[in-house]
């Protein structure tokens, strides 16, 4: 295991003093966090504390107004949109709570999307996608449409889609949020063990302490910044 506080030169992803507002809502007010390669980090905190916003800033989806996000030593927040999009495609995977699969595409076609973007051939993409579905225990679902999948099954497919390009970091925003405890445990088990075996880091937003316990480290957010219990407000 890499250094558990993610500090020092080993940090793969480093966000420093991020600020992000939506209209008059300040979602992030100086949040900083570091993630080491292969590390599993849980972002927790009350509703509205800025967890999802921080996750999307780390993933290069949202652009903070101030502060910096560096991946592998170089800044990604000031890259142009197209470059960031390509970076996300190669280096990151994303899993949401629900509703992320394209409803018209079958499970295997959903998983093929990132590979097609990288110009793997159709046949190669399909083979790789099937292999990942199999690895996540969803081989039988390859030709099902997302509308016909249960919550847990959808999440497996979504994880296959996030992992299929061999990303260095997988971002997951409440991946078990709409599942019961046992299905959620299955999903977490698959996510964490697969990430471990591929060496991917995982950044995880959750309200569930049990899910947070799958992480090596917890970062608690409060009012848009990392909560420091020593600071008495």
């Amino acid at each position: 295991m890499t250094s558990t506080d993610g500090s020092g030169a080993t940090a793969l992803l480093r966000a420093h003093a991020l600020h992000k507002s939506f209209g008059r809502t300040e979602a992030l007010r100086g949040a900083s966090v570091e993630v080491a390669a292969g590390e599993v980090v849980a972002l927790t905190g009350p509703s509205g504390s800025g967890k999802s916003t921080l996750l999307l800033c780390l993933a290069g989806v949202l652009r903070p107004e101030a502060g910096s996000v560096a991946y592998d030593g170089s800044r990604l927040d000031d890259l142009p949109e197209a470059t960031r999009t390509r970076l996300r495609r190669r280096e990151f995977g994303l899993v949401l709570q629900f509703g992320q699969l394209v409803p018209e595409l079958s499970a295997v076609q959903n998983v093929m999307v990132p590979l097609l973007l990288e110009r793997h051939g159709r046949a190669a993409a399909r083979t790789a996608a099937l292999a990942w579905l199999d690895r996540l225990g969803a081989a039988g679902l390859a030709d099902a449409l997302p509308g016909d999948l249960s919550g847990g099954e959808s999440q497996r497919v979504a994880m296959a889609r996030a992992l299929v390009t061999g990303p260095s970091v997988v971002f997951a925003d409440e991946p078990t949020g709409s599942l019961d405890r046992v299905s959620g445990e299955d999903v977490m088990e698959v996510l964490v063990s697969t990430a471990q075996s591929t060496g991917a880091a995982v950044v995880l937003v959750t309200h569930d302490n049990r899910v947070a316990a799958y992480a090596d480290r917890e970062v608690v957010l409060r009012d848009g910044a990392v909560d420091d219990p020593a600071v008495v407000r």
Partner: peptide, 18 residues
């Protein structure tokens, strides 16, 4: 109708022009 899945494709690296 499918904006959530479209936005998540974009977050996964599908360019908006696609």
């Amino acid at each position: 109708d499918r904006r959530r899945s479209m936005a998540s494709l974009h977050a996964l690296g599908v360019p908006a022009t696609d």
